[in-house]
Amino acid sequence: MINVFLLVPDLAPSQEATTARLLALGLPRDRFSPTVGVLGPAEGAAADELRAAGVPVASVAIRHTLDLGGLRRLSRTVHQAAPAVLHLFGPDAARSARMAVDTSGEAGNVPRVVVSGAAAPSGGLGGWFASRLIRRADRVVPVTWADGERYRVLGVPAERLTRISPAAPDPRPGESADAVLSSLGFPPNARVIVADGQLELGAGPKDAIVAFDMLRYEHRDLHLAVFGAGAAAPLLEQLARSLAFDDYRVRVFDAGADRARAIAAAAAVWVTAPHGGTDYALEAMAAGKPVVAWATPDLTEVVLDGQTGYLVPVGDKAMLASKARALLADPNLAEWMGKAARARAAERFPVARMVEQYARVYAELADS
């Protein structure tokens, strides 16, 4: 039996949390025993689902980079689980796990370390700690070729990189679109575009709000839902209100279970992250929704321009609005693209394939 400890910053919807959840639920129980660690509260629907499936979920709060008490608690929690493999999801997990890993052995780390979702660590001391552990990891897993190049720039040797495509989680059966939108505070018969709220490099949801402002005059029933803004929510609401005055039709939500519900009820999904964003695109595609996204190196590996949605030049808000207008004006086109998106997600990004590939990596490291 191979014990695997999956460490995530939180369980809110994200590429890292979704991958960890799918692995914890999908790894063969006759070969693997997973534990999920969370750098914060381990509550909510995702935590409940994991516990119901018999997966231990541990919460270890770490307040800041130099929180030695929190780092020691995390180290004890990891050692109690006795993992052969420690999988770190994201820069925060890589930064926080430094006291839980013995890097002094000639044969490799103890436990063996896998890193994913951490190609863009922040600056400062925390970023230095994260980058140091990423470079020392036994295996680093990029989800796209562009992601792999970012790890190369960080100094990760090519022989330690193993590319594994992300997975599109199966959409959960839900309510009617009208019921979902009503529960989220939208008026009857509203049409909603869903956008990612992660603010990076001063862009992302800001671009979506400006593009929406170009559309709202023509489409009086159109609304914008922004998910996962976190601390940037007041800033985004202020921007939206300054543009709309008394015609405010933007709602900003926390990342949570409502994101999947909103995507399932959306007319279209915008992905305006300056890098990454594959999880948002895949979630929309699996739900049968056309995606309009920046033509970043990451998203060009997921979205087929003109087939499963549209790719537009990064930062071109007018083109973002124009492509969304085309979908709103032609429901048949939107439906055709949505069906093509669902088919591509199921064929090219199945959960079973991703789980099998990670299982192979874990087994190789545990046996080495």
Rank of each mutant, 00 (worst) to 15 (best):
D138G: 08
A12Y: 10
A24S: 08
V210Y: 05
S368G: 15
A203M: 13
D246E: 15
R152N: 03
T278E: 12
A203D: 09
R63A: 15
P157R: 11
A137H: 05
V141I: 14
L299D: 10
R95T: 00
V153S: 07
P9K: 11
R360A: 15
P187D: 13
S59Q: 06
A359Y: 02
Q357D: 14
G127H: 09
G124D: 10
A265Q: 04
A195R: 09
A211T: 08
T19F: 01
L66N: 10
A84W: 00
T300C: 10
D196A: 14
A167L: 10
A262E: 03
P350K: 01
Q15S: 14
V269L: 11
Y358L: 00
M214S: 13
G204D: 12
A265Y: 07
A119R: 15
A287M: 07
E364L: 05
A324C: 15
R21D: 01
P91Q: 11
H275P: 11
L328A: 01
A12M: 10
Q357G: 08
V110R: 14
M337F: 11
E49I: 02
A42H: 02
R98M: 03
T35N: 01
N3C: 13
S96W: 03
A118Q: 09
L88V: 00
F227M: 07
E218M: 09
V271W: 09
A352W: 08
R72M: 12
S176P: 10
W336Q: 15
G69Y: 12
M99F: 14
L333W: 02
R21K: 11
A233M: 00
E16I: 01
A61D: 11
P13H: 08
E43F: 06
P9W: 04
G40E: 03
F227W: 07
R241D: 08
G127I: 07
V38C: 10
F32E: 02
R251V: 03
L39R: 04
V101W: 04
A190F: 02
A334T: 04
V57H: 04
S176T: 15
V226W: 14
E283N: 14
V156C: 13
M354H: 08
D196F: 12
P83I: 12
V140G: 08
P171D: 02
A326P: 07
L68A: 15
V113Y: 09
E237F: 00
M99Y: 13
A118F: 05
E159P: 00
G197V: 07
S183P: 09
G148D: 07
I62T: 02
A286W: 01
A284K: 01
S182G: 13
R51C: 06
Y217L: 12
G108I: 08
A334P: 00
H275S: 14
D279A: 14
I209H: 11
A100Q: 07
A329M: 11
S116L: 02
R152T: 06
A232W: 13
D67Q: 11
G185E: 03
V114W: 03
G306A: 09
P166A: 08
S165P: 08
L7S: 01
L88Y: 04
D367R: 11
D298V: 06
D258G: 06
R132P: 02
E301Y: 03
R29L: 01
V143I: 14
L50C: 03
E364D: 14
P234R: 05
V143W: 13
A352H: 13
A326L: 14
P274S: 12
L282C: 04
R31S: 10
Q15V: 01
A346N: 01
A359S: 06
V292Q: 05
Y280T: 15
A257L: 06
G230A: 08
T296E: 03
L125Q: 10
